[in-house]
Nucleic acid binder design. Structure first.
Lengths: 212, 212
DNA sequence: ATATAATGTGACTACAAAGTCATGTGACTT
DNA sequence: AAGTCACATGACTTTGTAGTCACATTATAT
C-alpha cells in the first residue's frame, strides 16, 4: 500500500505519478523498470517518491490493483446481467469483452502481459496468488451452474476445464491481436464463434448434437 | 553462437560451463541472471568468459538451443512411429511426453518457463520467432492430415485449433505439475484422457458421437 | 506572526552489473 | 632455445540501480 502522504496529494499530482508509473511498467518488464525514470517523468524528486511508496514493489502492486479494478469494472459493465445468459453466450461475451479491454486499455493490458512473465517469480506469485485462483473459481462456478442447467456435459472435469478456460481467456486475446485487426468487429465475432464451436463440440469428426 | 575458442575447450570444461549456465538460467529469470555467478560456479575468469561468448545473450541462446534439442530428441524417441497412430492417440502421447520431459529435465523446463516470461521482449521474440510457429505448424500439419483421414471435424479452423493445441501442450504441463504428483503415472494418463475428452467432444451437453 | 507539522529535495552511499584490457602462462613449432 | 599462438586472468571502468538523509520549503494551526 502507498503511504498516507501519497493519498494526501492533489489529484492531479497523483495522476501524474500513476501515469508515469503505468507508462514505465508497460514499457519494460518489472525487473527492468526504473524508479529513476518514473520520478523523472512524473517530475518529482527521489526523496518524494520514498515518502509516497515504500519501494518499487509497493508502487507496482498499486498500479496492478488499479489495472485489475479497471478490468473488473469494464467487464461488469459489458456483462451487466450475465446471469440471464446461456453459458456459451456468456463465454462468447467474455471473450469479446477481453479483446475490447485490451484494445481500449492497451497499457494496462501490457502490464498484465509482463506480469504473466516470470520476471520475478515470488512477486508474481504474490500477485497471482489472488488473481489466477479468482479466475479459476469464477469459471468453476459458471461451469457448475451450467452443468446443473444441463447446458454443459456433466462428464467433464470441472477444475480442469476451468483451468483451460482461464488459460484461453488470456491466450485468445493475444492470438487475436497477433493475427487480426483489432478494429474489425466482425472478425472478433467470427473468431469468438469459431472458438466456441470447438469448446462446444470438440474437434472430432462426426455429427454434433449441438449446431452452433 | 559461442566463439570458436569455446568449442576448442576440453569436453569437461565445456560441460562445467554449460552446467553452471543451466543452473543459473533455471534459477533466475533472464534479467536477473549474472555472468559473475556463472563464472564463479564454472570456475573460470571473467576474461575467459568473453573469449568464449560475446555476451550473456550469446550464452543464453546457446543454452536454449541445447534445451530444445534435448526436448526434440526426447519427443522423437517417445513417438518413434507416430505416423501410424490415430490423431487423438498421438495427441495423448504428446501430452504425456510433455509431462515426462519436464519431470526428467526439470532445469531445461524451468529455463523454458522463464523464456515464456516477458523478461526481455525482443529477446523472447528472437527466440520464439522460431519455436512457436514451429509448434503451430506441426499441429497444423497433423490437423490437416487428420481431417483428410476423417478423424477430425472438417469444419474447424485449422490455424486457430493449432494455436489452441500449442497452448494446451504448454499449459497442460503446468496445470499437471501444479495439481498432481508428477511421479504418479496413472494420474498422468487420467489427466491426458480428460483433456482429450474435451478436445474431442467439447463441453456442451448432449450425446456425443465419439465415446472416449 | 510564530510555531509546528507536512511535504519536497537531490547529492550521496552502497552495490552489482557488463564488458575491457594489459599482462601472464603454457604448449607446440621451428 | 626462441618464438608464436591460443587461452587465462582479475583488476578496472563505466553504468545503472535502490534507497537514505540532512536540509529546504510550504502549508496549517495557534
Amino acid at each position: 500500500m502507498p503511504k498516507q502522504t501519497f493519498f494526501n496529494l492533489k489529484e492531479a499530482k497523483k495522476e501524474r505519478i500513476i501515469e508515469a508509473a503505468v507508462d514505465e511498467f508497460a514499457a519494460h518488464p518489472y525487473l527492468k523498470t526504473s524508479i529513476n525514470r518514473i520520478i523523472e517523468r512524473a517530475d518529482i524528486s527521489k526523496g518524494s517518491f520514498y515518502q509516497y511508496f515504500s519501494n518499487k514493489k509497493d508502487l507496482y502492486k498499486y498500479v496492478i490493483d488499479q489495472a485489475s479494478d479497471a478490468k473488473m469494472k469494464f467487464l461488469a459493465q459489458k456483462l451487466q446481467d450475465y446471469q440471464k445468459l446461456e453459458f456459451f453466450e456468456l463465454l462468447r461475451e467474455l471473450f469479446i469483452a477481453g479483446i475490447e479491454f485490451k484494445r481500449e486499455y492497451p497499457l494496462f493490458s501490457q502490464i498484465g502481459d509482463y506480469l504473466l512473465d516470470g520476471s520475478n517469480e515470488s512477486l508474481k506469485e504474490e500477485i497471482y496468488a489472488d488473481s489466477r485462483p479468482k479466475s479459476n473459481q469464477f469459471f468453476e462456478e459458471l461451469l457448475e451452474e451450467a452443468v446443473m442447467k444441463e447446458e454443459v456435459d456433466p462428464n467433464i472435469d470441472i477444475k480442469l476445464t476451468a483451468f483451460m478456460l482461464t488459460d484461453f481467456s488470456i491466450s485468445i486475446v493475444s492470438y487475436f491481436f497477433e493475427n487480426h485487426n483489432p478494429e474489425n468487429v466482425d472478425q472478433i465475432m467470427d473468431y469468438a464463434d469459431k472458438m466456441l464451436y470447438i469448446m462446444k463440440n470438440g474437434i472430432a469428426k462426426g455429427d454434433k448434437n449441438v449446431i452452433n
